[in-house]
Design a protein around this nucleic acid. Structure first.
Length: 959
RNA sequence: GCAGGGGUAGCCAAGCCCGGUCAACGGCGCAAGGCUUAGGACCUUGUCCAGAAGUGGUUCCGCGGUUCGAAUCCGCGCCCCUGCACCA
């Protein structure tokens, strides 16, 4: 009977949502479980990788639902930012890839024409996520609570959040340096290049500008990343072929390249270009270095790029390979020397000065490295590599030497900041930000780093907030464990974070200055709350207009009285009471699950905003981080393609197969490559279970047997394990037991002659229930075949009842299985075709001795004592064996772990068990099987195997 | 730069926090047997090496250490990877 997955999925989803088992309202007194996954940003279609975390969330939620919890599992979308805007722009200009993407996903021309509006884009994808992804996967989500961050009610919520942050003194203003287009304001620089045409991998570099005094009072301004190397300055580099400018900066005149002057003007007040300055005219002149006051000479270098830094470079040949090779080349460049009046003496005076002791190098690492690599020319591409090598070791491991004044003996890393601070304080230096490579805005113009003088920040550096958050995080359920520990460091490292931005973005206007839009991370920190509110907004009982500060203060903080708030907001008292009660019921959030990209961004601010604004009893209780599903060649990427559309995959593999894949393929905390064959093999597994379950349902009833008790016992211990795994959110182990181990249990039962229909049905019912969290559609189908009413999805999983008797039943089958393994081993090694098999169970005195050794417990068994105890009652033959056996038992027992002791303690009558199983063994091995006790005089034992018998390990004789 | 993760048998991947149940879960692949007209599917068994008796040997990146005992703990080394820095 083949499974029609699509039909089965639709059938059950319709039925669940029709019966509204996915909806949840407060039930005072009943335990609740509130879980969300981090809502996705609206930037286009999602791919199969995204469904991993969502599916695991749903499995957890479904399990909670089946263990008595009132479950809240709402979903929404994060539309803040420019994702939808840039998508709409691509549609507008008929970008072929975008149009193709849409039409191949079944989007009509009419819809396409609507999607030039960003708000329509959000609306469109909200539907796609909801219907094609989450409902298509059968999630137990309360759809009435759907929300999106550009809804007016959500805007009110964020305004309130910002208001409260300000009231808590957690909003501060200070200057900020951000990449920006002159035309379009701030842009985001990221690898997916949503804002930009070019330069996604650029970084903002923090240069130190050092001012070198010329005799005429002007200042040559060099940009460096290594200000601490001022001690090793020997000369200055200026490009004679470049036009420089004199620029007035405050009351100083700086010489920099023209592009640098333009960039400086974006970052400093009152920068004014007054005249052009000729680079060539500076050659051979002298300038005074900042800090050390050393006089150095200006040399020509065509390597000074006017677009990089200030276009002027200071020279530290001891530690900068480029500077060293520059000097080497200059020395032999007669033309240049003559043209610019550079003398040998000048070059001699620029000899490298050792300043940093670098482990593994002599005093002049740059000289050493270039010589070792055989670099002789500035054209040598390996110069970059050489520079990296010297900088890396020098910066991280180097120590300033004795020529560095008060900094002698300092680690370079520390000296850098200290030297810079001192120079800035002395007016000899300034900070300058620049991009590491060219970045172009979508409009085509260049992006620069621009000073934003009045940027707003959320003050995550606030010590009280930080400490409270760290303390609370320690008490939270955070998985994986590594992140539970690491989040302490992340919180510690958190600083102020820009929380609003200028420019054309979707989002909430900043209540204290409407020009700004609340930034995308800052508006998604408290949002689990909004799912509670959204139910009332979506059903019309609360309108966005009514969501004033008083409203939120009232329902979320318990402030104000209902009557006056009702009057102010126009929301009736009953509704206000209900909203507050509902918030109090569901909050705090139990689990927030999200991808690993959230570890250093969303999760910390999610936590800190809760701690900063809400009462402690509402702080979140748990975080689960999921790693990614990757494409075989690397990351699945929307921009780079290769992403399999979710509905297509669902059609091809079946939703349950995908759900099982996500749940079982690996722990949540590793990346896993998506492979079609893997998913197919899970689909096969589902089909196999389906057909097996059908066989079980339809099997003929047979007589009761001993093995029935085993199957019942087995189900109970499986159930116990399953609960244990799920309580720890270990979905992978849970799935492993349910989908792989448990089918073996049923097979073993049948193989051992089990035939009780009632017993099988009881067990199958439990098995089906255990499948429901991960593969709910399959489970419902089996549930129905079992003739069970309603849904397995809202049935209650029984608690496990593991009795001592159940332990014994399991121990019996364990004995048999172990014995069969031993027999197989013997057969394999000896290649005997068995015709007769004699099994001899350990004599009673051995079992007694093991028992008494086990009773000694953790303290350890004593060989002498075991022997003394046993001797009086032993037969003469046994007396001969006893000492050796006692020794073996003592050493075995003393090495056993808890679990082993527990198992070994199960006292079963082996003779009886094996006698009852003789028939079965005969069938299995196709030979005659007889069973004796090892001390039975009637036994057949030509090879004298009997004395090998140990409890749990009967002696075997085969011929 | 800041903060982290990892290297396990042919492949994927558990185990590592809490050392002994570990030749190391499970899956895939492969092999043998069963079932079947045949093939597929399915079931059972096996899959580091040796072995005519249930055993022994050698393994969990490398080296060293702690321990009666280490895949698991500690140190050093080699190699690989991730997240973040107003994309979300």
């Amino acid at each position: 009977m083949a499974l029609d997955f699509a039909r089965m999925e639709a059938k059950w989803q319709d039925a669940w949502y029709e019966a509204r088992i996915n909806e949840s309202d407060p039930e005072p007194g009943r335990a609740k479980f509130f879980m969300i996954f981090a809502y996705p940003g609206v930037t286009g279609y999602l791919h199969v990788g995204h469904m991993r975390g969502y599916t695991v969330s749903d499995a957890i939620v479904r399990y909670k639902l089946m263990t008595g919890h009132n479950v809240l599992f709402p979903v929404g979308t994060h539309a803040t930012g420019n994702g939808a805007i840039s998508f709409a722009r691509r549609v507008e200009r008929r970008d072929p890839a975008t149009v193709d993407l849409l039409t191949s996903n079944g989007c009509s021309e009419e819809t396409l024409s609507r999607l030039t509006d960003p708000v329509e884009v959000v609306r469109f994808f909200n539907d796609v996520y909801l219907n094609d992804y989450w409902k298509r996967f059968g999630f137990m989500s309360d759809w009435r609570r759907f929300t999106s961050t550009i809804n007016p009610d959500y805007n009110r919520f964020i305004e309130w959040q910002m208001t409260k942050l300000k009231a808590q003194d957690l909003l501060i203003q200070k200057p900020y340096f951000a990449p920006a287009c002159v035309e379009h304001g701030p842009v985001a620089i990221d690898a997916s290049e949503t804002d930009i045409l070019k330069g996604g991998s650029a970084e903002v570099l923090e240069y130190t500008l050092l001012k070198f005094d010329l005799e005429d009072g002007r200042k040559l301004v060099a940009a460096t990343l290594r200000p601490e190397t001022v001690f090793g300055l020997t000369n200055f580099w200026v490009n004679p072929e470049v036009e420089y400018v004199d620029a007035k900066v405050g009351d100083e005149t700086w010489v920099v390249s023209r592009p640098a002057a333009e960039k400086l003007a974006l970052q400093m007040d009152a920068v004014e270009v007054v005249s052009s300055a000729d680079g060539a005219a500076l050659m051979g002149r002298r300038c005074r270095a900042p800090f050390t006051g050393k006089m150095i000479t200006i040399f020509p270098s065509v390597l000074c790029d006017p677009e990089v830094g200030t276009g002027l470079v200071m020279s530290v040949p001891s530690d900068a390979p480029v500077d060293w090779i520059g000097l080497v080349e200059l020395r032999v460049d007669e033309g240049a020397k003559e043209r610019y009046g550079i003398t040998e003496e000048m070059i001699d005076a620029a000899s490298p000065v050792p300043i940093i002791e670098t482990p593994g190098y002599g005093p002049l690492p740059a000289v050493e490295v270039t010589e070792r690599m055989g670099i002789k020319s500035l054209d040598d591409p390996r110069l970059e590599e050489a520079t990296k090598e010297v900088y890396k070791t020098g910066f991280h491991k180097g120590v300033m030497n004795s020529s560095c004044g008060e900094f002698a003996g300092w680690a370079v890393e520390q000296a850098k900041d200290a030297v810079r601070e001192q120079m800035i304080e002395a007016g000899a230096a300034a900070i300058f930000y620049d991009l590491s490579e060219e970045v172009l805005c979508r409009c085509g113009s260049k992006v620069f780093v621009k000073k934003i003088p009045d940027q707003w920040f959320i003050d995550y550096a606030n010590p009280r907030l930080k400490e409270q958050s760290k303390d609370h995080a320690r008490t939270m359920r955070i998985l994986p464990r590594e992140y539970h520990d690491n989040i302490q460091n992340v919180l510690e490292w958190y600083r102020e974070r820009a929380c609003v931005r200028l420019g054309n973005w979707l989002g909430t206007r900043f209540p204290f200055d409407r020009r700004w839009i609340v930034e995308a991370i800052a508006d998604s920190t408290l949002y689990p709350i909004h799912y509670v509110l959204a139910k009332y907004v979506n059903d019309g009982s609360v309108s966005a207009d009514g969501m004033t500060e008083e409203f939120f203060d009232c329902v979320l903080l318990g402030e104000g009285d209902f009557d006056s708030v009702a009057e102010m907001t126009g929301i009736d008292v009953g509704t206000l009471e209900a909203v507050r009660a509902e918030f109090e019921y569901w909050y705090p959030l139990d689990i927030n699950l999200g991808g690993k990209e959230h570890m250093t961004v969303h999760f910390p601010v999610f936590l800190m905003n809760h701690v900063g604004l809400l009462r402690p009893e509402h702080w979140p209780r748990g975080i689960i981080v999921n790693w990614y599903i990757t494409a075989t060649g690397g990351k699945i990427s929307k921009s780079k393609g290769g992403a399999q559309p979710i509905p297509d995959a669902a059609e091809r593999f079946g939703v349950d197969a995908m759900r099982l894949f996500y749940a079982h393929i690996a722990s949540l905390y590793v990346d896993v490559a998506w492979e079609d064959e893997k998913v197919e093999s899970y689909r096969d597994r589902i089909e196999r279970i389906w057909s097996f379950a059908n066989d079980l349902v339809e099997m003929d009833d047979g007589p009761p047997a001993d093995i029935d008790a085993w199957l019942r016992a087995r189900m109970q211990s499986r159930l116990a394990q399953a609960h244990k795994h799920m309580e720890q959110f270990d979905v992978r182990s849970y799935a492993n037991d349910v989908y792989f181990e448990m089918s073996h249990d049923f097979r073993w039962y049948l193989r051992r002659g089990g035939a009780s229909k009632e017993c099988v049905r009881d067990a199958l019912r439990v098995w089906t229930q255990l499948m429901a969290p991960v593969t709910p559609h399959l489970a419902e189908e089996i549930w129905e075949a079992l003739g069970m009413p309603r849904f397995v999805s809202d049935s209650q999983l029984p608690k496990a009842e593991v009795s001592d008797n159940a332990e014994l039943e399991e121990a019996k089958e364990r004995l048999l299985a172990a014995l069969m393994t031993d027999i197989s081993e013997i057969l394999k090694v000896t290649s005997i075709e068995p015709s007769r098999m004699v099994l001899m169970t350990a004599p009673k005195w051995k079992a007694d001795m093991l028992g008494s050794a086990l009773r000694e417990g953790e303290s350890g068994a004593d060989v002498g004592k075991l022997i003394r105890e046993a001797m009086p009652n032993l037969s003469p033959e046994a007396r001969k064996e006893a000492p050796a056996f006692a020794k073996a038992v003592a050493s075995d027992v003393n090495r056993m772990s808890h679990e082993e002791r527990r198992r070994a303690s199960a006292r079963i009558d082996e003779l009886e068990v094996l006698s009852a199983a003789a028939c079965f063994l005969k069938e299995q091995f196709g030979c005659d099987v007889t069973v004796f006790s090892a001390d039975d005089p009637k036994r057949t034992d030509p090879k004298g195997r009997a004395k090998q018998a140990r409890p749990g390990r009967p002696a075997v004789y085969i011929e």
